[in-house]
Design a protein around this nucleic acid. Structure first.
Length: 116
DNA sequence: TCTATGACTCCGG
DNA sequence: CCCGGAGCCATAG
């Protein structure tokens, strides 16, 4: 049935936020965790992503660590699949790190798609 | 029920 | 400025 926020698992909450990430934008685990009200559960966000395999609606490649580093790229099928996906959306990645990360950063709390 | 894990983050030296 | 260690919390076994 339709899952209420209370019945929904922490993972589903994470998915809900990640799905809201606009194309060409990225965010960090901590920002998502904070948006969920669990700023200290950043690691859980990553864990949720690990379980998001198979969910095409969850662009896990748009989620990186606070430094803009593609820490989770190693979990993707291809070695550079995550980087390729980001580059396909117009995001430039160098050395597993997003260029102008703060510019492409998307705050789930603000939920704005405007680019500085 | 308890222990271990981890795609993070923060703080101190 | 760079590096290391501890804290944190939800899920799985």
């Amino acid at each position: 049935m339709k899952s209420s926020p209370e019945t929904a698992s922490f993972f589903e909450r994470v998915y809900a936020v990640v799905r809201q990430i606009p194309e060409g934008r990225v965010t960090s685990y901590g920002a998502i965790a904070k948006a969920l009200g669990a700023a200290r559960s950043a690691r859980m966000v990553g864990w949720a992503m690990n379980a998001s395999h198979g969910l095409d609606d969850v662009p896990a490649h748009r989620v990186v660590n606070r430094s803009g580093l593609l820490t989770g790229k190693h979990h993707f099928a291809g070695r550079h699949l995550m980087q390729q996906l980001l580059e396909q959306e117009g995001i430039r990645v160098e050395n597993d790190q997003i260029v102008d990360f703060k510019v492409h950063f998307w705050n789930p709390e603000i939920n704005s798609e405007s680019i500085p």
